[in-house]
């Protein structure tokens, strides 16, 4: 019987309880943070946080579902996210973070330079974050292709 033919392992009641507790705590923290930011934060930061939290939670849920239901079709990141990664998955993550770390300093320097030349701080920080996410995604893709 191949791995893909296997039925997913049935989680124990203890693990289900722990997973439920973690989800409840994370959801409560996100909701309370969004409410607090909406009430006391500057501008529409609360709404932005809420949208980001919903999108992030949906992506995390999708990754968990994929890694648990079809581990052979999941990515290294999916498997590592649910604690089912093997040594190659960890090697892919190590290469990804190594490349991201190497790019972090020049990207941060570019953002500081932009701000020194008069670029708005919030836009510069936003671009820095987007650039780092993009570098991380490309680095993960390259590492997965090469390993």
């Amino acid at each position: 019987m191949s791995t893909t033919d296997q039925a997913p392992a049935r989680p124990t009641p203890g693990r289900l309880l722990l997973a439920g507790a973690v989800v409840a705590v994370v959801a409560a923290t996100l909701v309370l943070t969004a409410i607090a930011l909406d009430r006391w934060g500057p501008g529409n930061i609360g709404r932005g946080f809420a949208v980001g939290a919903v999108v992030g939670s949906a992506l995390a849920g999708f990754a968990i579902w994929r890694a648990l239901r079809r581990p052979d079709r999941a990515t290294s990141g999916d498997r590592l996210f649910v604690g089912r990664g093997d040594e190659r998955d960890r090697a892919v993550a190590a290469r990804t973070f190594a490349l991201l770390g190497a790019w972090a300093l020049p990207l941060t320097m570019a953002a500081f330079l932009a701000m020194a030349l008069g670029a708005p701080a919030d836009a510069s920080m936003g671009m820095l974050f987007i650039a780092q996410v993009a570098v991380g995604l490309v680095a993960a893709w390259r590492a997965a292709q090469r390993l």
Binding site: T3, D5, P71
Partner: peptide, 25 residues
């Protein structure tokens, strides 16, 4: 898939080892 299952690694890991892209520990 069967080899991956016996070794307790992913099928991608077996594929990478067979292609010489990944040297196992």
């Amino acid at each position: 898939s069967e080899l991956a299952q016996r070794l307790e690694v992913s099928r991608q890991t077996v594929i990478s080892i067979e292609r010489g892209r990944y040297d196992p520990s």
